[in-house]
Amino acid sequence: MKKVAGYPDSLTDKQFHYCPGCTHGIIHRLVAEVIDELDLKEKTIGVAPVGCSVLAYEYFDVDMHEASHGRAPAVATGIKRVHPDKFVFTYQGDGDLASIGTAEIVHAANRGELISTVFVNNAIYGMTGGQMAPTSLEGQRTTTSPFGRDVKEAGFPIKMSEMLTELDGSAYIARVSVHDPKHIRKAKKAIKKSFEIQLEGKGFSLVEVLSTCPTNWGMKPLDAIEWLKNNMIKTYPLGDLKTPEGVE
């Protein structure tokens, strides 16, 4: 009998440490479901970042490698080059990928490294306590932009996914959100597509997932969902940003 719902095999039974209302848990589950559906559990190596998802290796029930801050694409490159027949993904936040790890993600993408990146963008540093991220929105208040992000001083919200589409090595780049069930289903489809792109050897793939951080945004979970929907999507529009030819 085919399993149509239930707890994913590729998640351990360890309880998530994420704050109430944080969407990391949803995204973890989507990744695990896709690993299950593509029957990748025994050939996956995941790379965990530094940030709120630093403990991702405790949750994904696959071989995991904990990277240093921002370097997950480099670590994944090393792994994938040793095991080209295995499935390798990185799971990174926006501080990790869009700030300290810009060089690593750009060059991994540019090399067309056959890895898949799940890029969780919540427009703030969560783990370290709510500092401004390069992805923070204009005017967004954080502990290090207490008067709101002033783009004259602190630059503009960085659109990593759009940047990465320009590189010849990137095959599939998409931005999704997990603020409601409809978008969660779309997010899962995108993650699945990105994993398939790797399996088919088409090139580098990345799915940016807009995510909430009620704790550091200083909002109730439902308000955070609304804020994401009403503010983040304006700056970070959703959709497939780059798709290889011949892929739906």
Partner: peptide, 15 residues
């Protein structure tokens, strides 16, 4: 920096 982290990945992968 990237090179040493690639080494970290490849070493972890058993090479």
């Amino acid at each position: 920096v990237a090179a040493s982290n690639m080494v970290y990945g490849a070493a972890g992968a058993g090479a």
